[in-house]
Simulated assay, not measured.
Amino acid sequence: MGFEDVPFSITPDTALFFPGSQHVAAYNQISYACGHGMLAVMTGEIGLGKTLVIRTVMRNLPAEVKVAYLINPLLDDQELLRDIYTEFCEDPPPVGMTKSQVQAALLRHVLEGTAQGYRYAVIVDEAHRLHPEALEILRLLSNLETEQQKLISLILVGQPELDRTLMLRAMRPLRERIGVWLKLVPLHREQSDEYIHHRVRLTHCEGRFEFTQLALWYLHWRTRGVPRRINYACEKALLLAYARGQKCVSWPVARKACQEFSKVWS
């Protein structure tokens, strides 16, 4: 079929980052937040591309920005603090150190690094699953500052449950620190078409592979514009087209591809 790489990979492949308006806006604002001591929140339903935005940001941050990327939010406050220490210091804290000792050592390391021109950012994926105690630790870290600047940026990424958690009265001290609050939404029809064409263009040897207009319409309608669903459906559609010896994805092929996921997406 002429593809040099997998066009609709389910994994967050930063080489295929879609430069759609909301994703570019999220990328730009989170990149800025990482280098300027800000607290940023990005939420959205499953499959809208949150992790891909974050990993694209991390891939392109300047070397002086040190990132602690946490993908296991089901940690207590002490475990979370130790993980951040390990990410920033490149070694785990000595065994037996108390939480306050780890926090003090972490602060010293960040102060020394800041004096040398480094910036620090903590990025938490799946942040809607954080325990309240862990959120409090993150709030305290995000409050660390000198007279000139905040020392640690904090980026929270999660599903809409995170929005509801942050709106609780107990979360007011953290909520009032939020400088960027982004909410990803599904792609509309034109963006869905552009998303598919973008991935084909980057992976096909000739930069093109045809999806009929009716197939594109059907794919958007059935996937509701959710990028992860589009990937699943398009990958299946390409396999079906290849098996049939077709050089394009037609409406019957798109329909057949989506049938496999009908119960999951209902």
Rank of each mutant, 00 (worst) to 15 (best):
R119V: 06
G179Q: 10
V226L: 03
D83Y: 12
I30N: 04
L107Y: 11
G158L: 05
L202Q: 07
V102D: 10
L151V: 09
D163V: 03
P92D: 06
A26P: 08
L107Q: 12
G96L: 08
D193A: 14
L187G: 01
E79A: 14
L138F: 09
E145R: 14
E79G: 12
G113P: 04
I230H: 03
L74T: 13
F8S: 02
P93Q: 01
R175W: 11
G225R: 05
T56Y: 08
I54G: 00
W251K: 09
E133T: 14
A243R: 11
Y118F: 13
I84L: 09
C34K: 01
Y232C: 10
L52N: 10
V95G: 04
R139C: 10
R55S: 08
F17I: 02
L166R: 04
H109V: 11
L162D: 01
R201Y: 10
M1S: 12
T98P: 01
A215Y: 08
H197P: 00
T114K: 04
V226R: 05
I152R: 01
A68C: 11
V122D: 04
L144A: 07
Y232D: 07
E87F: 11
A257V: 02
G158M: 10
V53M: 07
L16I: 02
G20R: 08
V180G: 03
C89I: 13
S100K: 15
V124Q: 03
G113N: 06
I84V: 15
T146Q: 09
C234D: 01
D125T: 09
L187N: 04
I30S: 00
L39V: 15
Y218I: 00
R224E: 12
T51R: 06
E4L: 15
Q148D: 14
G44Y: 01
R119L: 07
S31R: 10
V180M: 10
R82C: 11
G96P: 07
Q149R: 12
A170F: 00
Y27T: 00
T165Q: 10
M58H: 02
W251C: 07
E87G: 00
W181L: 10
A257E: 06
E194D: 13
T98G: 09
P92N: 11
Y69L: 12
T86S: 14
L16T: 04
L174M: 13
G49K: 05
Q148G: 05
D125E: 14
Q29H: 13
